[in-house]
Each structure stands twice: as structure tokens, then as C-alpha cells.
Amino acid sequence: MNPQVLVDGLIAGAMYGLGAIGVTLTYSILRFANFAHSELLTFGAYAALALSSALGVLSAGLLAPIGPFSFGWSLPLAAIAAMALTGLLALAVDAVLFGRLRVRRSSIIVMVMASFGAALTLRSLLEFVFTSKPAYFTRELQIALPLGGGMRATPDQLLALAVAVLLVVAVHLLLTRTAIGRSMRAVSENQALAGVVGVDVRKVIRVVWLLGAALACVAGIMAGLLVQLRPYMGFDLLLPLFAAAILGGIGSVPGAMLAGLIVGLAEAGTVQLIGAEWRTAVAFVILVLVLLLRPQGLLGRPQA
């Protein structure tokens, strides 16, 4: 097998992992599979695109590529604002939709269906605003650097990998070392008891939306940077993200990252061995295998 598979798989996998962390966190605390998570990805990517272009209009200097990368300072600046915007969008959807259903103690499946409706709405509105034509953060071409052993990667790809690793570590530390992280884990295990202990569950839910949305935004920007932006970019990632979140074990951040990498590598391997046209089947096969063999996932607790 071509060693390049490893690089391609790791880079795609890092992106999946990042998206899957958002899925797994919101899933473990809100307790339903949020089909609208993918639209947070798409929204984040387009928000960053719009803001970055706006910054470029204000000052052309911001568009000049930074060092070896394909984008200028406008993108990282826009990314920070886009993360905040995506978080606000998630809070807004929660306020008008999920929050109301939660107060009524709606069943899981009603929440899932609501997320499905929200996904349709958001995705179609994005398609309306940005059209289905692919868009790009930059037009700069990048030369892939040799990494040794016949492997190559562009500086953008390496940066994406580094950012993913950094964010995973940061989220892991947040969950394990801070008070809010402790509250999040407590709410995910037992919401009623968390309240008894003094945790403000509503605040935790807000934080989780913000965090999940910000991570989705970064994953979306990565996908946009490494491939392209399309209104369906998030939708197409939904199956790999769910597969990774379930494979990793719902609620487990290291699990989600590990599983994201597994899905990415399996896809890259499949492209090499079987053919690119079967790539999207990989996530489904992995999903079926996990549900069949180990429904609690690699690092999840049983009967979660």
C-alpha cells in the first residue's frame, strides 16, 4: 500500500475527529443524536468565508498568504468570529426549538426529528444564500512538501492536523481538569443528581452548545480549506461523524478523536484498495460493525 494513504487518512481523520467531538459532547449531554450538527459545520465554514472576504475588502493586506500557507490573516481572524457566530446560532436554535421541547420532556425521538427539521431548514437557507456552487477560501495553489518515506502533505494539511491535535488536547483538559468540565461530565451521567449537587444544568447545556458549535465551525473551516465549501459539505460529513462518535463511545473525547482517525484511515485505505467511488460506504460499514459488535463504542461505558 502507498504510504501516502497514511497521511491522507490522518488528515481527513483529524477533521472527522474534531467534528465527532462536537457530536459526542452534545449527544452525551443533550441525549439525542443531533442531525443539525452538520449544518453547524457548514454554517461555520460559510460564516468564516463571508467574514474573511469582508476583511479582505477592508484591507487587502490581510489576504496576503501567511508564510507557507495558502491563506492570509483574514482567515484566522474570521475563524474566531465565525466560531462565536456558530455558537450563537446553536444557542438560538436551542432557544426556539430544542429548549422548548426539553422543557416539555419530549421523547428522544421527537428531539431527533426536530434536529432533522432544523437541519433541513438551515441547509436549504445556506444553499439559498450561498448557492450550490462550490466556494473556496483562497485560490492559492500549494505545493505538497515531502515528508520522507514517499509521503507528502501541504502546509495547510499539516496545520489542520496540528490544530486538530491541539483542540483535542484542550477539550480533554477542559473536561478533566476544570470545574465546568466536571459539571459537564456530571450532567452527562446523571442530570438530576447534578442539579442536586448544585450544578446549573441549563448553564452546562449552554456551554456545551457553544463548545460543540465552535468545534463544528473549526471542522467546517478545515473541510472548506482542504477541499471546498458547499451547502451539503456538512450533510456529507454527517455519517462519518456519527460513525466516529459511536465508534469512539458517546461522551468520550479521546474516543471520538481516535475513532475519527480510524474512519479517516479506513476511508483512505478503501480509496487505495477498492476505489474512490466506495469511500462514502466506509462510514456506514464501520457504523454497522460497531452496532453489531460493540454498541457502547471503543472507549464508551456499556449501556450509556
Binding site: 466536571r182 461530565r185 456530571a186 451521567e189 446523571n190 438530576a192 443528581l193 442536586v196 461505558r301
Partner: peptide, 11 residues
């Protein structure tokens, strides 16, 4: 202190 599930088992 609730009757059941009164600790966080995963913590």
C-alpha cells in the same frame, strides 16, 4: 442524598 444513583459512577 437520593435513594438510587446517588453518586457519579464515572467520576
Amino acid at each position: 442524598v437520593p435513594q438510587t444513583e446517588n453518586i457519579f459512577a464515572t467520576l
